[in-house]
Simulated assay, not measured.
Amino acid sequence: MTAYDFSLLLVRVVLGLTMAAHGYNKFFGKGGIGGTAGWFDSMGMKPGSFHARVAASTEMAAGLGLAVGLLTPIPAAGFVALMLVAAWTVHRHNGFFIVKEGWEYNLILAVAAVALAGTGAGRVSLDWALFRNSAVWDYVQGWGGLAVAVVLGLAGGIGQLAIFYRPPAKT
């Protein structure tokens, strides 16, 4: 294994398991999915129970998919959509820096996932094992992978916000 492939593996696993842990916490953390649903309702993502399940499931699936390097641009698109919605609904009014609960962390997670879609998951991945000698290869890495991650991610995040986000009225 080269240092390059190890580095990709390290970033994929840490990034992916971090996202999967967020999904797990939404399902099983303090308050569980019911508490998460209430929080989603309070921020204007209605119905909260639907969005809580979608967010938690997407975080787990995208995180695990990225960690194992399976169809890497698809989980990367999940990261982009999730982080766009989180940045818009929760963090945008707080500015950039995470120390003030800004959107800095959301940006880092989304860009790191897109970068992995562009570089490819590396030789220690399911993408390499399953697709390196197939027509799918051009879409799981390189410009094709990067385009899939960005286009699907932005479409998913913007679509979700346009259809479902109704910010609570200011009192």
Rank of each mutant, 00 (worst) to 15 (best):
I108R: 00
K100W: 07
D127P: 07
N133R: 13
N106K: 06
V99R: 14
L107Y: 05
L109N: 02
F131P: 02
Y105I: 11
A129W: 13
N133L: 11
L130F: 12
A110G: 10
I108Q: 03
I98F: 12
S125N: 08
L107I: 14
Y139C: 00
N133W: 08
S125G: 11
G120D: 06
S134K: 06
D138S: 14
A129S: 14
A129G: 13
A113V: 11
W103G: 01
A135Q: 11
I108H: 00
V124K: 04
F97S: 12
I108N: 00
S134V: 10
E101F: 09
E104I: 09
L130K: 07
T119C: 09
V124D: 01
F97W: 13
S125T: 11
A121V: 06
A135P: 04
G95D: 04
K100R: 15
L107V: 15
S134N: 10
L109D: 03
W128H: 15
G122T: 05
A113D: 04
Y139L: 11
F131C: 10
T119S: 13
L116Q: 06
D138A: 15
A115T: 14
K100A: 14
A110H: 09
N133P: 00
G120K: 05
R132V: 10
F96E: 08
G120N: 04
S134Y: 05
I108P: 00
L126Y: 00
L116G: 01
V99E: 15
G95C: 04
A115I: 15
W137T: 10
L116I: 12
G102K: 01
F96C: 08
G122W: 01
V124E: 03
F96Q: 09
S125E: 08
G95K: 06
A135G: 14
E104K: 07
N106D: 13
F131L: 10
L116E: 00
A112R: 02
G122K: 01
F131D: 03
V124N: 05
N133C: 08
G102R: 02
A112C: 12
L126C: 07
L130N: 05
V124Y: 10
G95P: 02
L126V: 09
Y139S: 00
W128A: 14
W103V: 07
L116D: 02
A113H: 08
W137N: 13
V114H: 03
W137M: 08
V114P: 01
A112M: 13
G118L: 09
F131S: 07
A129Y: 11
V111E: 07
E104N: 08
L107N: 04
D138Q: 14
I108G: 00
A135L: 13
T119I: 09
I98W: 11
G122C: 04
G95V: 06
G102M: 02
V99F: 12
A112F: 06
W128Y: 14
G120T: 07
S134M: 03
S125A: 12
K100C: 04
A117F: 10
I98S: 12
D138N: 11
A110P: 05
N133G: 14
D138R: 12
V114Y: 05
L107G: 05
R132I: 08
V124H: 06
K100P: 07
A115S: 11
A117R: 04
D127L: 08
A115V: 15
F131T: 09
